[in-house]
């Protein structure tokens, strides 16, 4: 079934995400990132950061939390078994650090067909507690073979 085009522009519920030290270390471990600025607050401070920082793609953790609402939206008609991650984009304004309380509201930025496939673009501007943008994340999911169906 083709995706519901009328959901273009739809905004979902805001998700709040406190950045915890252990979660950052777990993520650094999983990606094999050994730089002490991702593990040790003192090393991060010595490098000029306020606290232990997160590797740039740590924001993926929050994105996976937030995008659940979109991919499971019954109105959208996405069959997750047909989905592959097609594209990913990040624009960082500053590194994410431990103690940040991030919030983001995912929205459907675009839905379009190309050949037999459909593309769903989910965008979220992730902000800190003071309302400053920390990172803009844009994911394109590819729904295989659902165009024109």
């Amino acid at each position: 079934m083709a995706l519901n085009q009328s959901l273009k522009g739809k905004e979902y519920q805001e998700v709040s995400f406190p950045v915890e030290r252990d979660r950052v270390v777990q993520f650094a471990d999983a990606i094999g990132e050994n730089d002490p600025i991702y593990r040790d607050p003192e090393a991060a401070k010595a490098a000029g950061f306020e606290d232990q920082i997160a590797p740039p793609t740590f924001v993926t953790v929050m994105q996976i939390m937030t995008s659940g609402q979109v991919v499971l939206d019954q109105e959208l008609g996405l069959n997750y078994a047909l989905v592959v991650h097609g594209e990913q984009e990040y624009e960082w304004r500053r590194p994410v650090k431990v103690g940040d309380v991030l919030s983001g509201t995912p929205r459907i930025a675009d839905i379009y067909a190309k050949g037999p496939n459909e593309f769903l673009v989910i965008e979220a501007e992730i902000k800190d507690a003071s309302g400053e943008t920390v990172v803009v994340a844009r994911s394109t999911l590819l729904s295989r073979g659902t165009a024109g169906s």
Partner: peptide
């Protein structure tokens, strides 16, 4: 890491 401003990729 703060020097990395943006990245976009296709899988």
């Amino acid at each position: 890491p703060a020097a990395l401003k943006s990245i976009s990729v296709q899988f």
